[in-house]
Design a protein around this nucleic acid. Structure first.
Lengths: 239, 239, 239, 239
DNA sequence: GATGAATGAGGGTTCATTCAT
DNA sequence: GATGAATGAACCCTCATTCAT
């Protein structure tokens, strides 16, 4: 079997499954075990399929979907070119499956967030940390979503737009809730939602993902502070 | 001449020259006239070259650089395939030229900003409006820069990274200055710089560029407010 | 399957394998059988590859390497354009492989020559016949080597120069040996080596390869005589 | 005007005209003056034409006719692409003109050779020196003739074959004459003619043209010796 | 007489996809 | 279930040639 040339520089566990956060970020249990358990039950066929998906995830995120070759993917896995097409109708299908399973996992996260988020908590901090963790734990998918945002293929585009809209609506909803509770000032929640998410995304991809020696906790705190207070020298509004 | 299939959905003037803001955003004169005047003086060769560049700008922004075909570009212009290669060494050269002329224009903008920005003004508002205007006037280049951020080609990648770093450094510098002047609270200016720029970029591309009936001024004001005050219900810090 | 346009005018067996003389010229057995036997064992893939190489050999020798199109080659074989690139990295690789296998075969010949050449024999006759046979059995490769001697590609050039230098050194070495044994007069062996090889090459390509009704044995004897005695009317030096 | 990249390493005077030996090699007068005189009379148009031909000669000899670009040639001269086609119907016409003027010049040489060659002289030496000088003084055309011997274009091929046949017939004729005079032993003059010319050509191109510090006179003497005596240790037949 | 912008046919090469095994 | 040889459409790019100026 040929050796892979791809460098694994992210903290991903390099498994399509694990790249998808089935568990909530607030869960402290090790979800890996569950996945591992499930993995054990995978048939040989399912294993191959999963390996291909894992490899596709990495290759797509590194070379971009269009430039990524099926040959790159199968070389990574060590299977034949045709095997890819036994498991997936075409290249696009694999990408769509990756994206969809990511979104499915997200929906599970939402339930947890909604249920566990304490309204008295520092919502900005919680939200930022959740989104940041989400992106950090799914570096590859994050990259793909970022890079393919304007992919010429309409289906892919739509799917990714869905993800962004989802985040925006989450933020908007949280802000509206905060306003009703009196912990958020009056504002255009739609615009603010986009702004907050964009802020977090940029920081995750520019600082947390790219810079090696970065204090993640420090970065997240700074963002939360920015979200809460803005840049002006006022007393901490929480005080 | 063959008919173009590309849809011109953006508000760009669809001219490589006009896409590049040679004049400062603070200038209220209509620079278009000047550019038009210059255009009159273009030789036939230069006209062809410009037309190709204009078409390349659109095609690159719509299909992505790698998926964009030279044949798409020349079909748009109505010239032969070879004509592209008479004017540009290769596809990449055209992209690099577009990016570089954009960056050159930016540098001119900077000088104006530095010279004209009143420290007593609402810096966040001025900065946001400047960046937003810059991006809005160069929708296509903005799209390209956004889409090719992780292009596999190292040269392209570097060029675009340069652009982002430039914006980040601008924001960081403005924040540091504000801190020294006492109009900005103490913070990690590097992180905040990335956050502020990311916020603006997201809003421009998600709201201003994509949504038709958007009150640009309203959006920019909201962002400035967010930057100044954050989301918390404090009294306006400027008061 | 499309019809070939290439005319097979040479006496080549038109097989990349048979073009390469695996057996020594002094062997009287028919090596073709052995090669045929081996051919039987070739997998379908190897057969395709061999067919492409055979066709490339002919096309390269007829049109010249640079003018030869991959499409010519695959049309000859009856496979798709892509099939060529499945088997060979590029056009050059196929050429280099042809040249290298020829040179490898040569090295085997050398061992035989060195081992079997009787110093008491008419060395000039043996050498001439060996080189002439080598070239005659590999007409196409001979043509290629002749035509691409000054190919702009440095790698190709070097490879072919190697072949010529090899022949020159062989001749030089033989002459030096003859001088030590007293059967060759004192001379500048380096110059003489080039002269002898050039003489043989010219005759092979001008007379043996091109003229149909030529008595090969007669030609070779005439050359040997020339090499031994020159043109002057002296008594046969061997007498 | 762009600078040329071509290295002028040969001893050519780098003039299409001077590359063609209008004067016999045995003439000791400086024919350059005559040519120069003629040059003076060239109209500007004729000068341009000549310059293009000169450049074509060099480019063809260095890159090979097929790989040579018209753009290379005109860049060398410093004229526009179209200028080439004003003076020559196409690329091939320029090559054919170069070859033809070379052959015309040859015919003039022949008359001189035939008239001046002393039958009592060392004919081999005279013939070798004449051919060698001819090739050395026309390095570029020599290269072209050597490289394009098997050019796929039939017209070019034929023209070059003509040159070789001419040389062969010259040698054959000289040998037949020598035989009649009793200064050459009985032999197959046709084969010997090819052999003698091939010997000289190889040595010129392998040793004299390529190796820098080569004693041309020594090389020519060695060849003559080889032609006269062969390789065997006989007493000098001339004694 | 010369120009040089423009042409377009054609070449090498890539790669997603198919299908017989 | 997996293979991998084969495919062929499509792309980037080259360059001899044309023609309006």
């Amino acid at each position: 079997m040929k050796q892979s040339n791809l460098k694994n520089t992210s903290q991903d566990t390099f498994s399509a499954s694990s790249d998808i956060p089935i568990s909530s970020v607030s869960m402290n249990k090790t979800p890996m075990n569950e996945i591992a358990d499930i993995s054990e039950k995978l048939s040989k066929k399912e294993m191959t399929r999963k390996k291909i998906l894992d490899a596709a995830l990495i290759v797509f995120s590194q070379k971009g979907y269009d430039k990524a070759n099926v040959s790159d993917i199968v070389r990574e896995v060590g299977v034949a070119q045709g095997t890819f097409y036994y498991h997936f109708k075409d290249k696009k299908t694999a990408l769509v499956e990756l994206l969809n399973s990511f979104f499915d996992a997200m929906k599970k996260l939402v339930a947890n967030w909604a249920a566990t988020t304490d309204t008295s908590a520092d919502m900005a901090l919680v939200f930022s940390r959740n989104v940041a963790d989400l992106l950090r734990k799914n570096t590859c998918l994050g990259q793909i979503i970022r890079n393919e945002t304007n992919n010429p293929d309409p289906e892919i585009r739509l799917l990714i737009k869905e993800f962004h809209n989802y985040l925006y609506r989450q933020a908007e909803f949280a802000l509206l809730l905060g306003m009703r509770l009196g912990v958020v000032r009056e504002m255009d929640a739609r615009i603010a939602g986009v702004a907050l998410v964009g802020m977090i995304e940029s920081v995750v991809f520019e600082l947390i993902d790219r810079v090696e020696d970065v204090d993640v906790e420090h970065v997240i705190k700074e963002i939360s502070e920015m979200q809460n207070r803005g840049i002006r020298p006022t007393p901490d509004p929480r005080s």
